[in-house]
């Protein structure tokens, strides 16, 4: 397996767990893998980026401009912010959730309109996932990240059993069942 996956979102949305599930997947595949995260100040509701690189041999842990095969965005504006990191023809898997940044909340700026259309102009393929609505149905808002992983896995052509095994390896046992439901739901619509 070979893929550069950029996970973007808002601090607190669970991008770290998502990257760890993909790390567990690489482990199952026997591939080399590097993950890169940002801790500290950026986690406080700021724009966050997590890098996942899977290949036979990975050098830099960081995905650069025009270097991502896939952008998995937990928030729409963040998807747009990082489109310069997508390779030509790359795939964007985007949660249709909007989280307003402070300049929008204070009225200094407007939240961009038509984001999904803009993404379609810039990507080879855009998959929109109503991950928040699905997580609400499941009854656990924290599963948004795993719904997204399900949709991503389907698009990477990964068998459900394999991504499920990766999930099991990455989450605490007591959280596995609810997350498995989230994974399945994401996989089904991916």
């Amino acid at each position: 397996m070979k893929a550069n996956i950029l996970i973007v979102g808002v601090g607190g949305q669970g991008t770290l767990l998502a990257s760890r599930i993909l790390g567990a997947l690489a482990d199952l595949e026997g591939s080399d893998c590097k993950l890169s995260e940002v801790h500290g100040m950026s986690q406080r509701g700021g724009s966050v980026v997590t890098n996942v690189k899977i290949a036979d041999e990975v050098k830099s842990p960081i995905i650069g401009l025009r270097d991502a095969d896939i952008i998995m965005a937990f928030e729409k504006l963040e998807a747009l912010r990082y489109t310069n990191y997508l390779k030509k023809g790359g795939v964007i898997v985007v949660n249709d959730q909007e989280i307003l940044p402070m300049p929008v909340i204070t009225g200094a700026r407007k939240y961009p309109e038509h984001i999904v259309e803009d993404l379609r102009e810039r990507a080879g393929k855009v998959i929109v996932v109503p991950a928040l609505a699905i997580a609400e149905e499941i009854g656990n808002l924290k599963t948004v990240n795993v719904v997204m992983i399900g949709a991503l896995a389907k698009n990477l052509g990964i068998p459900f059993e394999k991504i499920d095994a990766a999930l099991k390896a990455a989450v605490k046992p007591k959280l596995y069942e609810v997350n498995r439901t989230a994974l399945q739901r994401g996989y089904d619509i991916g």
Binding site: V10, G11, G12, M41, S42, Q43, R44, G45, G46, S47, S60, I62, G64, L65, R66, D67, L77, E78, L80, R81, T83, N84, P101, M102, P103, V104, A108, R109, K110, Y111, P112, R122
Partner: peptide
Amino acid sequence: SVADIRLKLLGEKLDVEKQDLPVRPPVMC
């Protein structure tokens, strides 16, 4: 960055778009 090294030592430029999006600075929770 890798892109920085390629630009400075190989002269490879990347085609990137200028964007003017609302910033998302960290905030108090």
